[in-house]
Each structure stands twice: as C-alpha cells, then as structure tokens.
Amino acid sequence: MEFVSLPWWTMAFRWLHVISGIMWIGHLWYFNFVQTPSMPKIPDEQKPAITKFIAPTALFWFRWGAMATIVTGLILAGMNGYLSSAIKLGIGDHNPHNTAIGFGMWLGTIMWFNVWFLIWPNQKKVLGIVPAQPDEKKRAGRIAGLASRTNTMLSIPMLYAMVGAGHYY
C-alpha cells in the first residue's frame, strides 16, 4: 500500500498546492491581462455583464484559490520538514533550497494578504456587494487595482522561487 506512505501524501499535497495555485494565479492574470484592460473598450450598457456576473464569480475562485494555496503550501512545508528554516529564509543553514522556497513562501504570503485584506474588501465596494459612496468606490478601485498589479509583479519572482526550489536549488 504505497499510497498510504508519507512520500505519497507529500506528493499529493504538492499536487493540490499546484492545482490551487493555478486556480489563484490563473484568475489573477485573467484580471490583469484580460478583464481590466478590456473594461474601457466595453460599451457602458454591456459592462454589467462583467461587474454583476463574471467578476464576482472570478473573485470567488480567485480568493478561495489563494486560501487553498497557502493552506496546502504550509502543510506541504511542514510535511517536508523545512517550514521553520524556510520562514527564516534558510539564513544560517547554508541550504539554498530552503532560502529559495522561503522567499517563495514569503512572496506568496504577501500576495495572499493582498488578496484577502486589500483586493477583496475593496472590490466588494467597487462591485456594489457592500454599499459605498462614489468617492469611496473610486478610492477602493484604486487600492484594489494597485494591490492586484503588485501581485502580478510579485507572481513572477514568486514562481521563480517555487519552481527553482523544486528543480534547481
């Protein structure tokens, strides 16, 4: 019964971590590469299709993808025994793998924080899920937009650290 062994479960959590990560970063890139640049080109009467239907559904899978990614990632790091070394960026351990995965984990954690504490609360105001004055909506849109762009920027080195730790360092 090989599949009940620790190496199998570690592999299974890595698989779930990658699935969740694709759900998260796929939506992040959809927002930044497709939806946001397309909004100014969409006629006003068609915009509610995005704001009332597509964006709320995309945001649901986006934020819960982020949650599943961090939870499975922390479990995985714990199972692999490098959680505490990685949190300390492998400093003093002379272990390039733990330094690389540690940077990936910190970048991912900052991105998870941005999703749940900056993007989602502000998007709720923008989309009218919670009531907000027009000025407040504008400000919320600016904060959510910049946090989303920050995450797009951070996703590039984060993925280098994650993939590099698995296959190079």
């Binding site: 640049p37 400093i91 762009r149 920050t150 797009t152 920027m153 590039i156 080195p157 280098y160």
Partner: peptide, 30 residues
C-alpha cells in the same frame, strides 16, 4: 510621477527585474 504599476507592461518588466534581485539574494544568503 506616474506609478509604474499603472502600466501592465511596466508591471511585468518590474517582475523580471525583481526576479534578478531575488536570484542574487538567494546566492548571497545560501
């Protein structure tokens, strides 16, 4: 000054620049 994150292109370029910084940091620490 314009925020570089207002441009998708600058955002991606900054992501690659940060990756170079990250590579140097990993080598410096490990």
């Amino acid at each position: 000054m314009k925020n570089p994150l207002d441009s998708l292109q600058s955002t991606v370029v900054l992501g690659f620049v940060l990756t170079v910084v990250l590579i140097l940091l990993i080598h410096a620490i490990a």
